[in-house]
Nucleic acid binder design. Structure first.
Length: 426
RNA sequence: GGAGGGAUGUCCGAACGGUAAGGAGCCGGUCUCGAAAACCGGUACGGCCUUUACGGCCUUCGGGGUUCGAAUCCCCGUCCCUCCGCCA
């Protein structure tokens, strides 16, 4: 959510920047409603002042036993409260309308973000290692994972439905090894505090993280209990300090969570995304930071490096892309994607998305910090990044390290976890 | 799932329906070489609005209602605690 006061003070500039994300955006109705609300507010507050003083007078008269005068005063006040209630209702209605508009506006993009509505216009910032050249035609992971007994999509469909994964045998072990490796890596080397959060979130949590109202259709919802299934631990970690005022000395706060993630992926289909590329349920280790306003863009750079470090440790070819204005999530001011090479498709797939959401989520969730003793609280900046999504990473590993016979070499970093250097073991 | 109790500031804690006591802590001061103690003063976080003032409005878990006036009475909800039931 953007700061209404800032919009009021600088509407042209903010509208111009928002239009780089969505040319349809116009702030005029918002400003009109805001103007009207403030006018009514002044009116109603003056009436309330009058009522407060009159009430005090009634109390005084009663104390002094001047009952008749008090009754006369009370009679005079009857209409006043009626009028206040009318105006209050009108102000409340306007406030709701203003909020409705405000919560649907995206964050202001940072000035370093390339302006374009086409996701093709992302900027490749850097690459790691050479693109792997296999001495044979690489197979799609599904074309050998079933044979090797690593995955079983037909049986997963029997249990839940299509696009749900079922890992088994060495596939399950590999997935757990990836999770454990990422978990240990960020605990021990990059210094994030580990968290195992609830997998369900309430409407307020979804709203704060900005899953609501726009992405209502992308998340699973349990109507009976008014709870949403976790679509990404960003949603959950974002709410860890909702409503709090943090000490500036605590910042930056760095958290890491492992969760299963659930997404409806309505409308997703197609040959390109079969197998583990796009599923309703996947595993992810998520990184999250709460920072001050001054440091958040530096913290974004180090967050990206922390996520990259895992890919490097796995010896995978990847690149870092800076997304253009039109391709970022609404809450983000600046986003880097980490994309890993998928040999069978000869293209890159996103395995991590690292964003600085500045004060957008913090304002929704009222997450603040006190810059110094005695100073007014300010909104924190929130940052998130996958570190990483294991399910997609498994695709990269299976396909990059496949042997002609379909077996898979295990990256050095995972051997201690799996106790084998090839899957399945000979 | 059932029955009961509770939620007030940084913390503890009070308030016959009359406009949020008291204490601790914290901040400032006096005293002191300095500190502690003692004493004096300040302290409802926070938010909104404007004529930015010694200003006004809101804020006793959240939302409604009754009333001239609600921390207080009524209704709905959230969270916590106790007991019963169920249970990995």
């Amino acid at each position: 959510m953007l700061d209404l006061k800032a919009i009021r003070e600088n509407p042209e500039e903010i509208e111009r920047r928002l239009k780089t994300r969505d040319p349809e955006i116009t702030l005029t109705p918002l400003l009109e409603k805001d103007e009207r609300r403030r006018k009514l507010l002044q009116e109603v507050e003056a009436l309330k002042h009058e009522r407060n003083e009159a009430s005090e007078e009634v109390a005084r008269l009663k104390r002094e036993g001047r009952e008749e005068e008090a009754q006369r005063r009370i009679q005079e006040l009857r209409g006043l409260s009626e009028r206040i209630k009318q105006l209050d209702d009108e102000v409340a209605r306007l406030e709701e309308e203003i909020r409705d508009i405000l919560v649907r506006l995206p964050n202001l993009p940072h000035e370093s973000v390339p302006v374009s509505f086409s996701k093709e216009d992302k900027v490749i910032v850097r690459e790691y290692k050479e693109r792997p050249e296999l001495p044979f035609e690489p197979k799609h992971h599904l074309d050998f994972a079933h044979e090797l007994g690593l995955l079983d999509f037909p049986r997963a469909a029997r249990i839940a439905g299509s696009r749900f994964p079922l890992y088994l045998g060495w596939g399950a072990r590999l997935e757990m090894a990836l999770i454990q490796f990422f978990w240990d890596f960020h605990c021990e080397r990059t210094g994030y505090t580990p968290v195992l959060p609830p997998y369900l979130g309430n409407p307020e949590s979804m709203f704060t993280a900005s899953q609501l109202p726009k992405f209502q259709d992308d998340v699973y919802y349990i109507e009976r209990d008014e709870l949403y299934l976790n679509p990404t631990a960003e949603t959950l970690l974002c709410n860890l300090h909702r409503g709090e005022i943090l000490d500036v000395e605590q910042l930056p706060l760095k958290y890491m969570a492992y969760t299963a993630c659930f997404r409806r992926e309505a409308g997703a289909a197609g040959e390109e995304e079969r197998g583990l590329i796009r599923v309703h349920q996947f595993n992810k280790v998520e990184l999250f930071k709460f920072t001050t306003a001054e440091t958040s863009f530096d913290e974004l750079e180090s967050l990206v490096k922390d996520a990259e470090a895992v890919l490097k440790a796995l010896d995978l070819h990847y690149r870092v892309a800076l997304l253009p204005t039109g391709d970022m999530a609404a809450q983000s001011a600046k986003t880097y994607d980490l994309e890993v090479w998928i040999p069978s498709q000869k293209r890159y797939y996103e395995v991590s998305s690292c964003s600085n959401c500045t004060d957008y989520q913090a304002r929704r969730g009222n997450i603040r910090y006190r810059p110094a003793k005695g100073e007014k609280p300010r909104y924190v900046h929130t940052l998130n990044g996958s570190g990483l999504a294991t399910s997609r990473l498994m695709v990269a590993i299976l396909e990059t390290f496949q042997e002609p016979d379909g077996r898979v070499r295990v990256p050095e970093a995972l051997r201690d976890y799996l106790k084998t250097d090839v899957i399945p073991p000979r």
